[in-house]
């Protein structure tokens, strides 16, 4: 294992992760409101409200109401967006404005640990938020609005963590690249929002054009959303989950060294 990845398991990365966890625990009652309320509002507005006007449609041969289609997509979207947002905005604030990183780097913590600490934290938060969404979906199921195969949830949570890790490394890439916080609108609205909505999360994306096919094959969020959907709606597993895992591992293996190199240049002026 190269030093880039070995750092993920070293105590310094855990110390950085622990720091973020300590801060979050202190503010959990306010910090947990958005992930709790957002899916409730979205499921009510789009799933129940808008979904009431959408007749059941056929998804991969299964008749599916829109609320049932939306629920797994929201799980994938939550892990993706939370991890990305944390690694982009809040990591940037700690790096640039709060100078938290500089305070850590004058101890036994090195830059690779700061990077992994941020990535692990963003992934943890992404998974926790996805878990909260899962609990909301359980509530909807108990209310009789949703019928999902919950046994698959145990398989999904580790996968959501892996997804969140991968998207955190993507967020950190932009943290390293954007000249100022104002420039974050560029990756957010030109890359992340389009990616989030064209990945079979909120609506099915289909098409025979080579571009659409290439997009669907290479897009890990699409595989994640479709894989989770199949597990939760039918209890079955197919190639989407394997493809998602492979693409996330590829993202992590490529992006971690790049993030580290770019951040070394940005924070330390080296490289």
């Amino acid at each position: 294992m190269t030093p880039h990845y070995r750092a993920a398991f070293q105590w310094q990365s855990r110390a950085v992760l622990g720091r973020h966890l300590t801060v979050y625990r202190r503010n959990w009652h306010t910090a947990a409101l958005p992930p709790l309320l957002e899916p409730i509002i979205l499921l009510l507005a789009f799933g129940v409200g808008l979904g009431g006007f959408i007749p059941e449609f056929s998804w991969r041969g299964h008749p599916v109401p829109y609320l049932a289609y939306l629920a797994p997509g929201m799980l994938a979207y939550t892990a993706f967006m939370t991890a990305f947002f944390q690694a982009l905005f809040t990591a940037y604030i700690r790096m640039h404005y709060q100078k938290t990183w500089e305070g850590q780097l004058v101890t036994q913590v090195r830059l690779e640990h700061v990077v992994w600490g941020e990535v692990l934290w963003a992934a943890t938060l992404g998974t926790v938020y996805a878990l909260i969404v899962t609990l909301v979906l359980v509530g909807f199921s108990l209310a009789g609005w949703l019928h999902l195969h919950w046994i698959g949830a145990f398989l999904i949570l580790p996968l959501l963590f892996l997804a969140a890790l991968a998207f955190a490394t993507l967020g950190l890439l932009f943290t390293a690249l954007v000249p100022s916080i104002d420039h974050m609108n560029i990756p957010f609205f030109l890359v992340i929002m389009p990616l989030g909505f064209t990945s079979s999360t909120y609506f099915p994306l289909e098409g025979d054009s080579p571009w659409t096919q290439a997009w669907l094959i290479l897009n890990p969020l699409h595989h994640l959303a479709e894989g989770i959907r199949l597990v939760l709606l039918t209890g079955e597993i197919d190639y989407h989950l394997v493809a998602a895992c492979a693409l996330f591992l590829l993202m992590i293996s490529i992006l971690v060294p790049i993030d580290e190199r770019l951040l070394r240049r940005r924070v330390l002026g080296e490289g």
Binding site: R19, T22, V23, Q98, K99, T100, E102, G103
Partner: peptide, 10 residues
């Protein structure tokens, strides 16, 4: 360090 790099979250 020259700048204050204490942790403002604590």
């Amino acid at each position: 360090t020259q700048d204050d790099t204490f942790d403002t979250d604590f």
